[in-house]
C-alpha cells in the first residue's frame, strides 16, 4: 500500500509536465514482460550460480551428501597447503605468459605482413583463420598424432635433419610447452583478424602525412602511426587472449590429463577433477573463485585502459 502510494506520487510528480504517465504506463508493462524471461534466466543461470560458487567455496559440500556445513576458509587453507594447487597455478601462469605474448606478437606480425602487400591477401587470411574454426578437440587429436614419439610427423621431421625427437606430451619437461604451441597455433588467427580490422581502420592520410613529415622506412611509419593507432586493438587482443589462456582446458584434458606427474596441470583442469570427478563441489568452487579473480583482474586492466579510448565493436 505504501509502495503504491509512493509510486503514484512519483508518477504524479513526473506527470505534471505532460500527459506522459499514461503513455509510460502503457509501455511499461510490455517492457517488463519482454525483459522478464531474460531477468529470470540471468538470475537462475548466471548471477545466482556466480554467487552460489562463492558461497559454495565456504562449505564442505560434496555431491550426493545429504548435508553440508559452513567451514569458513578451510577450502582455501587446504588449497594453499596443496602442492597440486601451486603447480597448477604456476603452470597456468606459465601458459598465459608464453601464449599471450607469442600469439599477440605473431598475430600482429602476420597482420602487418598481409597488409603490407596486395597479393594473396584473402588466401592468407583464410589459412591463418582456419584453426579458429576447426573444433579444437578434433585438432588436438591430430596434434597428438603429430607429436607421437615414434610415428609422429614432428619427430620424423626432426630425424630427417638429424635431431633427436622426444616424447613431447609424455615428457615432464615438454608437455606444457607442447600445449603452449597448440594454444598459439589456435589463437594466432583470431588475433590476426582483430589486428587486420585495426589496421584497416587507420586513416590513410596519416601515412601520407608521415611520409611528408619525413618518416622514412617501415620502422618509422610503424612507430609514428601504426603502433599508436593500434593501441586500443592491442589492449583488447591482449586481454582477450589472456582470458582465453586462463580458460585452457580442452587440450589438457584430451592430451595430457594434466600429466605427466602434474607437469601440465592447469587451474580449470584441477577444478574439473575436484568438482566433477571427485565431486568435491566446495573445494572445486574455491578453485573457481581463484580463477575468477584472475579473469576479473584482466577485465579491470581492460576497462581502465578503455577509458583511454578503447572501442568495442
Amino acid at each position: 500500500m505504501a509502495d503504491a502510494l509512493t509510486a503514484t506520487t512519483i508518477l504524479a510528480g513526473r506527470g505534471a509536465a505532460a500527459v506522459t504517465p499514461a503513455r509510460d504506463n502503457s509501455r511499461s508493462w510490455p517492457a517488463l514482460a519482454m525483459v522478464a524471461p531474460a531477468i529470470v534466466l540471468m538470475g537462475l543461470l548466471l548471477l545466482g550460480p556466480l554467487l552460489g560458487v562463492i558461497a559454495l567455496s565456504f562449505t564442505d559440500y560434496q555431491l550426493g551428501s545429504p548435508r553440508f556445513a559452513w567451514i569458513g576458509f578451510a577450502n582455501y587453507e587446504e588449497m594453499l597447503a596443496d602442492r597440486v594447487f601451486w603447480i597448477s597455478l604456476r603452470n597456468t601462469l606459465t601458459y598465459v605468459a608464453i601464449v599471450v605474448p607469442t600469439a599477440v606478437a605473431l598475430g600482429l606480425a602476420v597482420a602487418l605482413l598481409i597488409e603490407s602487400g596486395s597479393s594473396l591477401r584473402a588466401w592468407y587470411r583464410t589459412i591463418y583463420f582456419l584453426p579458429v574454426m576447426a573444433t579444437l578437440i578434433a585438432m588436438s587429436i591430430v596434434w597428438e598424432f603429430m607429436l607421437h614419439p615414434q610415428f609422429g610427423l614432428v619427430n620424423g621431421l626432426l630425424h630427417s635433419v638429424g635431431l633427436e625427437g622426444r616424447s613431447w606430451l609424455q615428457d615432464r619437461g615438454t608437455a606444457l610447452y607442447a600445449l603452449c604451441v597448440i594454444g598459439v597455433w589456435q589463437a594466432l588467427g583470431f588475433n590476426m583478424v582483430l589486428f587486420l580490422a585495426g589496421l584497416v581502420s587507420i586513416p590513410r592520410p596519416l601515412y601520407d602525412a608521415a611520409e611528408i613529415d619525413g618518416a622514412h622506412g617501415a620502422w618509422a611509419r610503424f612507430r609514428l602511426v601504426t603502433w599508436p593507432m593500434l593501441g586500443p586493438t592491442t589492449v583488447f587482443v591482449v586481454v582477450i587472449t589472456g582470458i582465453r589462456s586462463f580458460q585452457v582446458f580442452d587440450t589438457v584434458h584430451v592430451l595430457t590429463k594434466g600429466g605427466p606427474s602434474k607437469s601440465s596441470e592447469v587451474l580449470i583442469h584441477t577444478m574439473y577433477i575436484e568438482g566433477f570427478e571427485f565431486f568435491r563441489s566446495g573445494y572445486g568452487a574455491a578453485l573457481t573463485v581463484v580463477f575468477l579473480v584472475f579473469v576479473l583482474l584482466l577485465t579491470l586492466v581492460k576497462s581502465s585502459l578503455a577509458n583511454r579510448g578503447v572501442h568495442y565493436a
Binding site: L46, L47, G275
Partner: peptide
Amino acid sequence: LFALVLFCILIPPQATAIPVFLLFH
C-alpha cells in the same frame, strides 16, 4: 538491468559450472 547485462557478459562459463551442475542434478 543494462548494467547487470554488461556484468553478466564478463562471467566466464567455467565459473558457473559447479552450481549449475548441482542445480541440474
